[in-house]
Design a protein around this nucleic acid. Sequence first.
DNA 1: AAAGTAACGTACTAGTTCGTACATAAGGGA
DNA 2: TCCCTTATGTACGAACTAGTACGTTACTTT
Lengths: 223, 223
Amino acid sequence: MSSQPATRPPGDRLRDAERTRAEILEVAQREFARNGYAGARVDEIAALTRTTKRMIYYYFGGKEQLYVAVLEKAYSDVRAVERTVDVEHLAPVEAIRTLAELTFDHHDAHRDFIKLVSIENIHHGEHIRKSEVLANLGTPVLDLISRILDAGQAQGVFVTDADAIDVHMMISAFCCFRISNQHTFGALFGRDMTAPEHRERQRAMIGEMVVAYLTGAGRRAAT
Amino acid sequence: MSSQPATRPPGDRLRDAERTRAEILEVAQREFARNGYAGARVDEIAALTRTTKRMIYYYFGGKEQLYVAVLEKAYSDVRAVERTVDVEHLAPVEAIRTLAELTFDHHDAHRDFIKLVSIENIHHGEHIRKSEVLANLGTPVLDLISRILDAGQAQGVFVTDADAIDVHMMISAFCCFRISNQHTFGALFGRDMTAPEHRERQRAMIGEMVVAYLTGAGRRAAT
DNA sequence: AAAGTAACGTACTAGTTCGTACATAAGGGA
DNA sequence: TCCCTTATGTACGAACTAGTACGTTACTTT
């Protein structure tokens, strides 16, 4: 009558703190991304897990701490990807274009992350501001852009005197918007920006856009 | 002992359906924009009004219908502004630049609207999709952009073969992002994009960017 | 001035949701 | 093998929140 076999494959423990924790985090990310912080239900997260609500409080302490943990994990995943980006050996124009396109790909592939960021902004960034893990996470990409801009100006190909943060904003804005505002935009203009048939064109757009801006075609073109 | 004067100035009625309705809408807009749909509290909205919760249900029927009413009002306000835009008499380059800058100004001035749009996107645009009032609200601005693009290409100043929806997206993305993502961006990069000292520079940026893209400086600049 | 209706207020309920007290079992070390 | 710690499950409670039943008052119309 034993429903449990006497021997289990090794590593397939009945009780595994790491696995349980990770599973909660994964389910929670989806739930928060889909429903927002206030809209997310702790009971629902528990139901979608192999474990129970009790464990959420056991491992994370509460809804808010779970949310912060989800945010931290999502951001640190992004950081890990960014570290692998190497565009230093490219010429400035191609370097910035490649960076823009990689950002595009990354945002396109991590849509839940974009939604989490939107949600965090609705709550005025109060959680991200508290988390020490997430402070100064932006500097690496900023350094990279700075070096590209400096090189471009030194070589005379970049005419516009642009600021690294501004350039990063320009790229992020485009890449985020098509994900974060897809539904209202789709309702108003009858086009799903995130549909595969628009992907390549938009990917090229952000590259062209940044390069065009930096190389300066817009400067008083009609005066 | 009458705490109420026998005669009141005309127009200052004790009971005014329109005024009460409008006050609820106004307060609700702030509450929804600040806390999201699920986070907003009907009791809180009522408390910030001169009237009671009962009236919210009397005039709107429920929380969700109130939210839709807020959305519809916000969008129709935007529409009203857009109708006043006249850039037809300008040369294509200046026309598109001016449109971009006006969009920038408008988004900068209506931050609660941007937040409502963000919130609606988190909920997958389910309300905006249902509302007939909000359908086809996008076409006017699209027509405008189309005409500008056509004129620019006819005159040979626009080299890039751009799509009107894409161009609108490009402008909206930039103008929305600096408002909707201000908090996470601020936390990561230590700059409040919405601060007054960055306004003029960013306003110029979006204009330059669009013009540069359309006049084609980015095309194979390094090959 | 009477009466009917639109506008409004109070007090309450039903249901949901976060969080916890208490009980229990698995796994590892002595 | 025994025990102790870590991990887990169940059942429940307290607080909050959307929504409503019922009663009342201002304004309008005739």
